[in-house]
Design a binder for these strands. Structure first.
Length: 150
DNA sequence: CGTTTGACTACGC
DNA sequence: CGCGTAGCCAAAC
């Protein structure tokens, strides 16, 4: 099934991470990139800029592999939206899967503050030489916010 | 083998 | 808050 000659360690690492995203959660390209140390020879500064795009490349490659073990649909952009061309079949599939998991709101976006992935546990990250991801949820300046409903 | 494009983001209006 | 832009590398053409 895998026809790509050698996707490279970076892609493999991306796929490894994406496999950890649980049903009902979503991660962003930048978030995933931020978990991976810069490939050798790449400045941190450059990597911050390019990493998210490479993650996108890895997702593009995965759709060609069509590996059901990699929940690529749970990877979205920093705005909580789908980055595929809206009219493409792949986008339709992603929308359908996200909707099926109940995390796509009426504006066809994922509320990252509610469904944003918090990442694997620290032990897992350390075991794989990865960083813990930054949280996608809004900063809590002073402990858990009281939900002021009234 | 040169050109074009893109599954990104941060930033400015 | 939505839309346009720059920057930048690797794939895809």
């Amino acid at each position: 099934m895998i026809e790509l000659p050698d996707p490279g360690p970076f892609y493999e690492t991306v796929w490894l991470i994406v496999r950890q995203i649980p049903q009902g959660s979503a991660a962003t390209y930048g978030q995933i990139a931020g978990m991976i140390p810069p490939p050798s020879g790449i400045d941190q500064e450059d990597y911050d800029r390019l990493g998210p795009r490479w993650v996108g490349d890895a997702m593009n490659a995965v759709s060609r592999l069509d590996d059901p073990a990699i929940p690529w649909h749970r990877v979205i952009n920093s705005k909580g939206g789908i980055s595929l061309p809206p009219d493409s079949p792949a986008a339709a599939l992603q929308r359908a899967r996200l909707r099926h998991e109940g995390i796509l709101n009426d504006r066809e976006q994922v509320d990252l503050s509610a469904c944003g992935w918090e990442g694997p546990d620290a032990a897992w990250c350390e075991a794989h030489g990865l960083y813990r991801p930054r949280s996608l949820k809004p900063p809590a300046p002073d402990g858990p916010q009281q939900l002021s409903l009234f």
